[in-house]
Write a protein that binds this DNA or RNA. Sequence first.
DNA 1: AATCTATGCAACCGCGTTTGA
DNA 2: CTCAAACGCGGTTGCATAGAT
Length: 270
Amino acid sequence: MGRSPCCAKEGLNRGAWTASEDKILRDYIKLHGEGSWRNLSKKAVLAGLKRCGKSCRLRWLNYLRPNIKRGNISHDEEELIIRLHKLLGNRWSLIAGRLPGRTDNEIKNYWNTNLCKKVADDHCSKKSKNKGKNNPTIPKTEMNESQVVRTRAMRCTKVFISPQLQKTTTGASVKPILESIPSPFTAQDNNPSTSEDDDLMLDVNMVDVFLSDILNSDFDAPCYFDCSGYKCNDLSAPAAPDGTLICSKDVMEDGTVNNFLQQNGGWLAE
DNA sequence: AATCTATGCAACCGCGTTTGA
DNA sequence: CTCAAACGCGGTTGCATAGAT
């Protein structure tokens, strides 16, 4: 539905960008601002830039945008990417969102060329330590054990939370997460889906609120997102009505926040 | 020096989602 | 409500370069 022919259009340039094309695009965006890429490309043609909107957008976001960092990914950034990937899978744009100045494309490339192997090697060395046997490659079956179950380009916009917010697995009283989430994220009285008997289904920007809390937390520290009431201790059981389980088994086994979510049946849903 | 192979990265492609008429 | 256009994302490709033979 509605897919545009884009670069296939005749007369538009493709391939590597030249310095003069960069200049035209930079000047144009400086003058008119970014966004409306299709219109931008139409107007930019008049300025001598024969590129489709899609191509302009990509070039701007990945290369020309101000404050963009290029290369020299630090050790800290690398660590963060690994952690985020473990948590989020191949959602490069989300990962890039946590690394100021980095683009999803750069992180994706960096992962595929460096970290992918590195993580695989670590995985192997851990396994070989356990088994006392060096295994150069990860068997397919093991790869499948650690996977993020999701459809492509899924966005998490809602979190389901049981009304029984005061209980934890240990019975300790915990400050409900809702108290710490400012309006408009708290349930509204006039919302028919949030009566006392119903589950609270909050429209939450996961990146800014919930996910942000998770990512900012120490993964080894306990973190209470009380979602009791939905038991899904068995990984084979579907975590959510649509079968979405956001975290990998590896992560869940690490005693992380996701472990908590798993034990308490919380889920992140589309 | 010439050729082959591996690697890194920019750019493209195709699909799902969002938006607006 | 429907549909087309536009947007945004992740996967993939292809080129340039470095290193090995």
